[in-house]
Design a protein around this nucleic acid. Structure first.
Lengths: 216, 216
DNA sequence: CCTACCGATCGGTAGG
DNA sequence: CCTACCGATCGGTAGG
């Protein structure tokens, strides 16, 4: 990156980033529909039409918000695993990072995608499609590592990588759900126990050697 | 019930029931907040204020809608299990019925409670509290049967009934989630396989004899 | 980025 | 149950 490339960052882009970042945190708590352009403008100290001009429609604002959340999700959960050897170890790391993302409240309203997926799952359109794309990417990442684990002989015979990922992902979603609505003590503990025992049950001897004992 | 007791059913109650029933199906798709009194009145062919008079506030309408959904949930899932012997068999039947409730679209938007729980989990108030009560009742029912199974020697030593219910409930929620957003083929199949193998792994010899082989 | 404005719809009320 | 209405807010536009 050259010293002058920063010139390309117009002030408009910075403002847009500020808007989207604020919208992302708000949407994790109250949903993408409760994102009112007027309220957003008031809280950011700008005029409604000034904010609106950055997007052109509420739908565009919602999609930009989803894309920003996807990047935040990637930084919190995926990025640190990319240098690990692929397979069972990376799969376990992704799940551990997801639970950390819940515990650390990376979004103030819990998992952004769980929240907006439930909100839009019955409303066809571009917003729903963009959310579904994010969810498929995440599931694909988990399934890819489970499949590599399978190919590397890290899973016991007869273990279906897709079925395994269904079960592991179920535990992470249930943790988010219980944490948000029921505010249980140590609810992520249930998820950690479930994930650890599912991974141990699925691992071959070669696989067991790469599992972190203390982690989820 | 005497032949004249029906006189107590005022016409107002019938209208109220019609409203709540319609609201319940609408809310399973678009949420309890999108329940607009004006739209609801239009679709039911009555005036806004006429409909409003039955509840006095939108919050009361939302709570009445949750209570109606709880009854529908009970009829679809719980009622038929009450005459079964308690323990592992009833636990399995409740889970099987839940998956049937998804497959049969008892609510047009999937599981009513999963939808509204995600919507209100970050909005303190009476609506959220009523949703949380429903969820705790349902979880309590599952934990009760798992505990009875434990006491009856239907579970293997070392199996924690609460942990077991966490895992089983996770599979049912994941099925609802995938079914709504990702519209996967045979997604309840993953849940059925997961539930069956979790129950089999948790069951003692005595427990295994009460499990239905074909069921979830 | 702004002010000023549009029609539509919101929850809720007055009065019958 | 109704008509008629309230103030507030919605997404979006005109014009600068």
């Amino acid at each position: 990156m050259s010293a002058t490339s920063g010139v390309r960052s117009h002030q408009g882009e910075n403002t847009r980033n500020r808007i989207v970042h604020f919208a992302m945190n708000l949407a994790s708590r109250h949903g993408l529909d409760a994102l009112s352009i007027g309220e957003l403008a008031k809280e950011l100290g700008m005029s409604k039409s000034g904010l609106f001009a950055h997007f052109g429609s509420k739908e565009e604002l919602q999609i930009a918000t989803i894309e920003a959340a996807e990047e935040t999700f990637g930084c919190a959960i995926i990025e640190s695993t990319l240098e690990m050897p692929e397979g069972l170890g990376q799969l376990q790391a992704l799940l551990t990072n997801y639970l950390g993302y819940l515990e650390n409240s990376v979004f103030p309203g819990g998992c952004f995608f769980a929240a907006v997926a439930a909100e839009f799952d019955d409303r066809p359109g571009r917003v729903r499609d963009r959310i579904a794309l994010s969810m498929r990417k995440w599931r694909g990442l988990l399934e890819r590592q489970a499949t590599i684990a399978h190919q590397n002989g890290q899973l016991r015979e007869g273990v279906d990588p897709v079925q395994l990922v269904f079960e592991l992902k179920a535990f992470t979603h249930e943790a988010n759900f219980n944490l948000r609505l029921l505010e249980d003590q140590g609810v992520t503990q249930h998820a950690k126990v479930a994930i650890r025992s599912a991974l141990k049950a699925a691992a071959s001897e070669a696989g067991a050697s790469v599992l972190q004992v203390g982690a989820g």
